[in-house]
Computed example of a mutant assay.
Amino acid sequence: MELHIRNETSRLKAVVLGTAESNGPVPKIEDCYDPKSIENILAGTYPLEDDMIKEMDGFDRVLKKYDVQVFRPKVMKDVNQIFARDIGFVIEDKFIRSNILPNRINELDAINHVYEQIDPGKRIIPPASVHIEGGDVMPWNDYIFVGVYSGKDYADFITARTNMEAVHFLTKLFPDKRVKSFELRKSNTNPRENALHLDCCFQPVGKNKAILHKNGFLVEEEYQFLVDYFGVENIFEISKDEMYDMNSNIFSISESVVVSEVGFKRLNSWLRKQGFTVEEIPYAEIGKQEGLLRCSTLPLIRE
């Protein structure tokens, strides 16, 4: 398999899409990785497996409508395998395995049928000191945007997934790229004050536009960098409630086609006014676990 990913929006040719099959029972509070899942467990609204399977099957159909080759993980009994973006990512022709939470390592084994098709020389395993997950990494042509948390209390946050060692690692691995880091706001208890990954508060769309949520960034100058880079006229700024609903976590099939949640009325209207084709699907049940469309995918090849 010839991997090729330079950015977030070029025409998608091949992708891993997670699975909700055999997702397991409702987790215990102490086993949760994010505050939104905890909130839904306490409220009795944690998503049902059948509903999540239907949502992911709808996503699968849209991808195949655009002739995308879709790989799915091997189903493992009682394992949450929805968020394929967490376990790895591709930049240029390299597959970088994430250093994910230790009790999620089985999720990597479930995509061995994909991993084994990749040139061994292009499979990159970061050292243990490098904490990194795919939701925090956004290749954007000459840039690699990376969400991080570098506070001294890093170890206290189950929601802090990518550290500064990851930035240094990517800088060495891709010397021709400009690696730009962004400090993200973290909370173990309040999902409206938690940017679990960079794609929870930022995502490029098309050739020169972006979705942003200012409060997701701890350093205003870093947020302002993105405003200046894309231009204020090209930015859709989402509210705290829209961030909570995961409005920045849509997914681009191409520079002109995006997949979005059917309930994102304001965003979808803006996208259409910008000339995008918006494929709307229900995905709100998946969103109850603080991840959405981008989180469910691991793109392998874009044109």
Rank of each mutant, 00 (worst) to 15 (best):
136 D>V: 03
238 I>T: 10
204 P>E: 09
209 K>M: 12
295 C>K: 02
76 M>Y: 06
13 K>I: 04
207 K>C: 07
264 F>V: 12
40 N>D: 08
217 F>L: 04
133 E>H: 03
85 R>I: 02
171 T>P: 00
281 I>R: 07
170 L>I: 13
65 K>D: 11
44 G>M: 11
153 D>F: 01
27 P>Q: 03
130 V>K: 05
115 Y>L: 14
104 R>I: 08
155 A>I: 09
56 M>L: 15
82 I>C: 05
191 P>R: 01
200 C>T: 15
49 E>I: 11
72 R>L: 01
274 Q>H: 01
172 K>R: 11
106 N>Q: 12
75 V>G: 09
249 N>D: 05
269 S>M: 07
131 H>K: 14
185 R>K: 14
266 R>T: 11
99 N>F: 03
107 E>Q: 13
303 E>P: 12
65 K>Q: 10
99 N>W: 03
286 I>A: 09
249 N>L: 01
298 L>E: 11
127 P>L: 03
71 F>V: 12
253 I>C: 04
23 N>G: 04
260 S>G: 09
283 Y>R: 04
57 D>C: 06
166 A>R: 05
39 E>C: 07
85 R>L: 01
163 N>W: 02
64 K>R: 15
300 L>D: 11
283 Y>H: 14
234 N>Y: 00
180 K>N: 09
26 V>Q: 06
177 K>G: 04
241 D>P: 03
159 T>Y: 00
303 E>R: 06
102 P>C: 05
108 L>Y: 07
113 H>F: 02
59 F>N: 09
83 F>N: 00
235 I>D: 08
186 K>P: 14
287 G>V: 10
61 R>D: 15
232 V>Y: 04
230 F>Q: 09
52 M>N: 10
198 L>A: 07
125 I>T: 15
230 F>I: 12
191 P>N: 13
299 P>S: 04
272 R>Q: 12
188 N>P: 14
13 K>N: 08
97 R>G: 10
270 W>A: 07
226 L>W: 06
290 E>P: 01
79 V>R: 12
5 I>W: 01
103 N>G: 04
233 E>G: 03
235 I>V: 14
235 I>M: 01
97 R>N: 08
299 P>H: 04
55 E>H: 02
114 V>R: 12
100 I>P: 11
